[in-house]
Write a protein that binds this DNA or RNA. Structure first.
Lengths: 340, 340
DNA sequence: TTGAAAGCGGTACCAG
DNA sequence: CTGGTACCGCTTTCAA
């Protein structure tokens, strides 16, 4: 019964034209108080909801809709990122289309195309590992759809982005381990295709070099999914080396959790025998025992800023918005306490 | 340059009608191979993307779009729920609109209205605590928009839903504590407005009663946000009672994390002096020390099924789809090991 | 202050 | 096999 009320329904009931109804509802000037009130009343009674599709079509994609593509939503960092975006979006009356690329560049491209055909006003993208500019982004760029990159950027494309300073975060983390007296510092790193993999490794390597230490190949173990299981496995490899490390810096907190589990299980005391530092300041880092020292990554803030960059880019077409959040160490028990 | 290619652009270039182009692109039968190929080629060249808005408008909301409303996305359970939904949605070529109600019923209602005006084909909703059927759901029901409830249902409304068996989960959890010899079992519960609050409490209460135990008012502490801080606070209250409990069953894993932190801090040994059981099997439950015994809640499965219920409800309008996932205890160290 | 009519980008019916 | 035309619901000139 309540089917969808349309402008024309109101118009007919009041014996006026659609135009007038539209004007009344949109608060235009040229309209008498009476008719306006009548329209408003009836609209409320019929529970009138404008058809956004029609409006958008008519106005040529000026609906308020933004697309978000993330590699995964169940990783703490990405879920807080999403939260930041959504809170900002809601405040500005934007609706948010979300999709997971599952770290698959082809799927990412498909999603992006679908988003475009839905007429999104912009895209906030945390690129998947193998994502490639030419194929995935160029089509959107040609259509002048604003894109804000998050977490990771493309080497060959300068765009709006918001990221955290992975390099310096890693550098500081390893410096802290060195300062706290650890001698043989290993790194469980992420894949090279992934900027967090290479940037954090770069920080690790430079920290060692700057302190006159060698980078030992056997102390660097790669992982791909960056989860707890891989952390445990990598720890197994590392601590069974003839000359095992006395500290581990990991690419994510989840990996660190695996290391901690290994140490707890095989009675390697943290931080006395082994120092551990993670990356992300995920929820778990505070809950682990011992508490995990980690590099903070402010998901919410990154998300909020990304959305606001998108908004700003709408009015200021020429400007390029970029921000790198400073990294910040969150020091807990897992890395020794002789911090100066 | 690449602005948006439209049907009419292709038509003019090929000197044929829009109708024909449309037919070619939609794989209709009545069309010659030649023209069809010509259209397809040009479409590819111009990078033609159909305007979903126009199609939807014409077809009267038959775009493939679904709206998801969750209280929070950064809770592990909800983020896995979302993941389940999105994976299923992607497979069926649906796009997913996501919004957070932040446990605010008014905001939830606003979101739902916006979703409707965007012409979503259906809504998957994990209701916020104070959500009320009349105000929040009735408008959608009237417009015959399929709704699948997740995690929580409304007392006064029978609809499609997917949930986990909170009552039995809680019952088993507390039974385990009893079986393992704990005598004074406390409960940190969620709000009454929230089905997980009341259902889990009901399980707790019945387990005690069925074992001939009393329910002590001072052993039941309420919390609202169900986070770690509240858990810590509630633990403080409980363990400072004249006759403190020797076990705690908590409404969520995060609350349990707070309890564990309290115990670690004040040297109450788990599981020897205090048993702890949580609810959710969140990531953290495996990472805590000691590992937290908890009741599994399969977010992904719930999400997937919810989406598939929505799809099915499209073809079978009369049927009501309902599923309650069995609860399953995940036993770890935090509750004693004399499990039979 | 109001209304008629065109059109956003497609689809679908009908005629040829 | 192809084209003409109406129309989805709304906004926006333009004219009255």
């Amino acid at each position: 019964m309540d089917q969808k009320a349309r402008l024309i329904d109101i118009a007919r009931a009041l014996n006026i034209s659609v135009t007038t109804v539209s004007r009344a509802l949109n608060n235009k000037l040229d309209i008498s108080k009476q008719t306006k009130q009548a329209v408003l009343d009836l609209a409320k009674e019929l529970n009138y909801q404008p058809n956004t599709l029609a409006i958008s079509l008519r106005k040529k994609r000026t609906l308020k809709l933004i697309g978000v593509v993330l590699p995964n939503v169940d990783h703490y960092f990405f879920s807080t990122l999403l939260q930041g975006i959504m809170s900002e979006a809601h405040q500005n009356n934007y609706l948010v289309l979300v999709a997971e690329s599952s770290q698959d560049a082809t799927k990412e491209r498909e999603i992006l195309e679908e988003f475009v055909s839905y007429g999104v006003n912009g895209v906030l993208l945390a690129p998947s590992r193998e994502s490639n500019y030419e194929e995935n982004l160029l089509p959107l760029v040609k259509q002048r759809i604003p894109i804000v990159l998050m977490d990771r950027t493309y080497a060959d494309y300068s765009s709006h982005f918001v990221q955290s300073d992975d390099y310096n975060g890693a550098l500081e983390a390893v410096n802290l381990l060195i300062k706290n007296g650890y001698k043989r510092i290993a790194h469980i790193r992420g894949s090279d295709h992934w900027s967090i993999g290479s940037e954090r490794y770069r920080g690790y390597a430079d920290a060692l070099t700057q302190n006159g230490r060698e980078i030992l190949k056997e102390y660097v173990v790669s992982c791909t999914l960056a989860n707890k299981e891989e952390g445990f496995q990598a720890a197994t490899t590392l601590f069974n080396l003839p000359n095992p490390p006395d500290a581990v810096f990991t690419v994510t907190d989840n990996v660190a959790a695996g290391v901690i589990e290994y140490c707890n299980q095989f009675n390697l005391f943290i931080p006395e025998q082994v120092g551990v530092v993670g990356f992300s300041n995920a929820e778990i880092s505070a809950l682990l025992s011992p508490g995990l020292t980690t590099v903070e990554q402010k998901g919410q803030d990154i998300g909020k800023l990304a959305f606001s960059f998108f908004l700003q880019s709408l009015s200021d077409k020429s400007k390029v918005f970029q921000k790198t959040f400073e990294s910040k160490l969150i020091v807990r028990e897992s890395c020794g306490s002789q911090l100066s």
